[in-house]
Amino acid sequence: MDPIFLIGYRCTGKTSTGKYLADFLNKTFLDTDLVLESTYDTTIAQMVARYGWPYFRAKETETLMNLDLENAPVIATGGGIILAEENRQFLKENGVVVYLYATASVLTARIRKDENNTERRPDLTRDSLSLETQKMLEIRTPLYQALAAISINTEEYAPKAAAFQIMAELDPQSGNP
């Protein structure tokens, strides 16, 4: 089995779903944001504040390109990783891409509840959270959709159920566990 890359906007459930999926498949779970933060011993918010978005995006690409894909891990990617063409190409060529999504209003509510959001995730624009989310989804959704082999609406599936749905779509012959 190829690596599985989970893509989608903030708070679509990439990390939670990815952990369940990796566990069910007996695979390693990686989160590119956590790998990046560990590698550079800083949070993404601190990195962006200190060096700016272009620097962060470059380090994000470097992190993706240096992942150990040897044992076909399950990988949760940062929400904006799809903005760089070379990242999109890498994802397509090196694994199965699964797009997790929800509506802007649901994501805004989830982001507001996410305790990690303010400390680790920098604002993307100077707009209100709901307007920022809407604007970012307008830009990113076509990129996410174009990459996806599988798409899962995380308004319909909690993380564990989403992981089961991904497994069923990866291997339709096996039936839903």
Results as ranks from 00 to 15, higher is better:
residue 128 S to Q: 09
residue 128 S to R: 10
residue 128 S to K: 11
residue 128 S to W: 08
residue 129 L to Y: 05
residue 129 L to Q: 06
residue 129 L to N: 02
residue 129 L to I: 08
residue 130 S to N: 11
residue 131 L to M: 09
residue 131 L to V: 12
residue 131 L to N: 02
residue 131 L to C: 06
residue 132 E to V: 07
residue 132 E to A: 13
residue 132 E to G: 03
residue 133 T to Q: 07
residue 133 T to H: 08
residue 134 Q to T: 11
residue 134 Q to V: 06
residue 134 Q to H: 10
residue 134 Q to P: 07
residue 134 Q to D: 10
residue 134 Q to Y: 13
residue 134 Q to S: 11
residue 135 K to Y: 14
residue 135 K to P: 03
residue 136 M to G: 02
residue 136 M to F: 07
residue 136 M to N: 08
residue 136 M to W: 06
residue 136 M to H: 06
residue 136 M to V: 14
residue 136 M to I: 15
residue 136 M to R: 13
residue 137 L to Y: 13
residue 137 L to N: 03
residue 137 L to I: 04
residue 137 L to T: 03
residue 138 E to G: 03
residue 138 E to D: 13
residue 138 E to I: 06
residue 138 E to P: 01
residue 138 E to W: 06
residue 139 I to T: 14
residue 139 I to R: 13
residue 139 I to K: 14
residue 139 I to W: 14
residue 139 I to L: 15
residue 140 R to N: 02
residue 140 R to I: 00
residue 141 T to L: 08
residue 141 T to C: 04
residue 142 P to E: 09
residue 142 P to T: 12
residue 142 P to H: 09
residue 142 P to A: 10
residue 142 P to N: 12
residue 142 P to C: 10
residue 143 L to C: 02
residue 143 L to S: 04
residue 143 L to A: 07
residue 143 L to N: 02
residue 144 Y to D: 01
residue 144 Y to W: 05
residue 144 Y to N: 00
residue 145 Q to E: 15
residue 145 Q to L: 09
residue 145 Q to R: 12
residue 146 A to C: 01
residue 146 A to P: 00
residue 147 L to S: 07
residue 147 L to A: 11
residue 147 L to F: 03
residue 147 L to W: 00
residue 147 L to V: 02
residue 148 A to W: 06
residue 148 A to I: 07
residue 150 I to L: 09
residue 150 I to E: 12
residue 150 I to F: 04
residue 150 I to A: 06
residue 150 I to T: 09
residue 151 S to K: 15
residue 151 S to E: 14
residue 152 I to F: 11
residue 152 I to P: 12
residue 152 I to L: 12
residue 153 N to P: 01
residue 153 N to S: 11
residue 153 N to C: 13
residue 153 N to G: 10
residue 153 N to M: 03
residue 153 N to W: 01
residue 153 N to D: 15
residue 154 T to I: 03
residue 154 T to S: 00
residue 155 E to G: 12
residue 155 E to W: 01
residue 155 E to H: 03
residue 155 E to K: 03
residue 155 E to L: 07
residue 155 E to Y: 05
residue 156 E to P: 00
residue 156 E to L: 15
residue 156 E to T: 10
residue 156 E to D: 14
residue 156 E to R: 13
residue 156 E to M: 14
residue 157 Y to R: 04
residue 157 Y to L: 09
residue 157 Y to C: 06
residue 157 Y to G: 02
